Computed example of a mutant assay.
Amino acid sequence: MSMKFAFSTLGVPGLPLPDVLRLAAEHGYHGVELRAHPEEPVHPGLDPARRADIAAEFKAAGVEVLGLAGYARVAAPGDDEPVVAEIRGLLELARDLGAPYVRVFPGGADGQSAEEADAVAARRLGTAAEHAADLGVRILLETHDSHPTGAAAMRVLGLVGHRHVGALWDVMHTWLGGEQPSETYAALSPYLGYVQVKDIASASDTSPLALGAGVLPLAECVEVLSRHGWDGWLCWEYEKRWYEDAAPLPGLLTAGREHLGRLLNDSA
């Protein structure tokens, strides 16, 4: 098995880090994607001593920090500086924690033309890319909101043209955008950082489900990645934070990892 498995702390809102690390170790996950938000234990407001402690806790547990899920919106209208500063703060936190990736959103607004949104996003990402390169961290633009497909994300990434700016493939948004996994992979493969997997009941009901219990084309996604020899991370983003009635994630983690393992074996 070449791919590695992680889960996002979006699935365990506010859970203390020692408990997160225990879940990862007990259920066979190699890494964790940390939601970088003030309501979580990890966010850019942490002082250097706390950052060092967190990095040490992960190292001691043998669990990797896959990435920081930030909330900067790179295509959003307004001044560049606050957005670039927000990305810089995330990049510095990632460096301090030993995380290779920082997630940002497109965040284009209604009334913006696609060309304008693309240009604004590319300009800000290009500016932040220099800082990312200095710190050895990659910024990943998630397939999300105004740019839900690989084709849409590629428009921005092609304009940036910097190896420290890549893509985060969220399989739900590309599916909702009407893109086939083979099409998404073809668009994003030069830029792909890692892949967020999840499952939902339907396009109209996006409440999180156990992996394999819904309609998302997880088997096809894993199959296309395997066929191309991709050996990166699959990260389960279970959106418990936004769906309080969803089943608790801890009880689903082992079955989720086993499901991904079966998909990998079937595609080998």
Rank of each mutant, 00 (worst) to 15 (best):
K4D: 00
G11I: 01
P13D: 01
P16D: 14
V20C: 07
V20P: 04
L23E: 01
Y29L: 00
Y29Q: 02
L34K: 07
H37Y: 13
G45D: 08
L46N: 04
D47S: 07
D53P: 13
A56D: 14
K59R: 08
A61Q: 11
G62T: 09
A72R: 02
A72S: 13
R73K: 15
R73D: 10
P82I: 13
A94W: 09
D96C: 00
L97E: 04
A99F: 09
A99P: 08
V102Y: 12
D110G: 11
D110Q: 11
E116N: 03
A122G: 05
A133I: 07
I139D: 14
D145I: 02
S146P: 11
P148N: 09
A152F: 04
V156N: 11
G158H: 05
V160I: 12
H162C: 01
H164V: 00
V171M: 14
W175T: 13
L176C: 05
E179A: 08
E179T: 06
S182L: 11
E183P: 12
P190A: 00
Y194P: 06
A201Y: 08
D205Q: 03
D205N: 10
G212Y: 13
G214N: 10
G214I: 05
L216S: 14
L216T: 10
E220Q: 15
V224T: 08
E239A: 11
K240R: 10
P248D: 14
L249H: 02
P250M: 02
G261T: 09
D266L: 15
S267R: 07
